[in-house]
Design a protein around this nucleic acid. Structure first.
Lengths: 204, 204
DNA sequence: GTCTATACCCGGATAGAC
DNA sequence: GTCTATCCGGGTATAGAC
């Protein structure tokens, strides 16, 4: 069996995916890890610091995966392929992916819905480079959309993907066949990205 | 000065808009209302029940406002006008509306990000009739989109609007001029709604 | 019926013994 | 490194004053 910090990380990750941050107590984690209540404070500083670390590593994995998918696409890839490479790592929940991936996307969606300051900072920092590259490639397909507006749309899609996983919308999504969800979302996202821009100022 | 339940509601509403549900303690509310800790339990049953009541009334106001805006639109209103009637009441945060409205949209965005079961139920219940009517009118402008896909897109937009108000995205939205935000969002939403559907099954 | 004081339990943090 | 004991803040339930 591994050392205490590893066991704590593992237990936290599992519980985070199962119940979400709101329903985990420090005692739950330490019990599951076979460790003492005080061990979290000693090794990580606080409960939140431990959870943040788990979320951060999930974030990192996701960005790595996005980067890899992007690198695999040919230089002349279509808009839909780009969107797919972007969306699928973010939104793997409902598809039957491997356990590890499902767990990760549940963690990320939970984290997006109640972001700690540390995660918010991490998100902004990591989003910048990868998403910039993604947006550069996307923008070739929609030259009529100004950079700032494309950035807003991209942010809005990120927000939507994160929030759609929350309980508030679970009921509304129940009607959508799970295997169709990703395709339908991609179609919607492509439409939003290619929309006519609002322009510099609405005079009428 | 009004009775205790009113003072509690008022204090809760103010604090909810100022700090969000996560950063309010029962004692904060009762102190602000000049009431005793136990008064919340007596009048509302629990802290969550009080907060839910505030959120519910904000939700009701918003739906009333949406209904009113929709009723004002001529029968042959364009898609953009419909979207505007839908979006503006939901997303009044950054615009300089009256105090009451700004407060209300902050409360709703906060509630969407960490919905209690009661709010989730209320949301689904109230959303159905109003949004159905809205969707009926929208769908006339996009006859090529199947009802189920339109419903998904509508849900996704709702999710995006709610999440965009959270702290996680505040930094990313900082670049967008506040007075342009609504127009740019409307343009994006219209594009997403009019997108080509994914179709019944993607064979290629 | 209203309201208050208070006691209880849970959860996170931490000091200090080992 | 690990554990126990303890503290403190937060939500809740209740007994009793008015």
């Amino acid at each position: 069996m591994r050392d205490t910090p590893s066991r704590l990380r593992e237990a936290a990750e599992r519980l985070l995916a199962e119940r979400g941050a709101a329903r985990i107590s420090l005692r739950d984690i330490t019990d599951a890890a076979g460790a003492n209540v005080a061990s979290v404070g000693y090794h990580f500083g606080s409960k939140d610091a431990l959870l943040d670390e788990v979320v951060r590593s999930s974030l990192t994995e996701m960005y790595d995966q996005q980067r890899a998918r992007l690198a695999q696409l040919p230089e002349d890839a279509g808009l839909e392929d780009l969107v797919r490479a972007w969306v699928l790592p973010t939104f793997a929940t409902h598809a039957e992916q491997d356990e590890k991936q499902r767990r990760r996307s549940r963690i990320l969606q939970d984290a997006l819905n109640q972001p700690s300051p540390a995660v918010t900072a991490q998100l902004a920092e990591m989003a910048a480079p990868v998403q910039r590259q993604l947006l550069d490639r996307i923008s070739r397909h929609v030259p009529h959309v100004p950079q700032e507006e494309l950035w807003l749309r991209h942010t809005a899609v990120l927000a939507a993907l994160g929030a759609l996983g929350s309980d508030a919308f679970a009921g509304m999504l129940a009607a959508v066949p799970p295997d169709r969800l990703a395709d339908q979302l991609v179609a919607w996202i492509v439409g939003g990205l290619t929309a006519e821009p609002a322009g510099p100022r609405q005079t009428a």
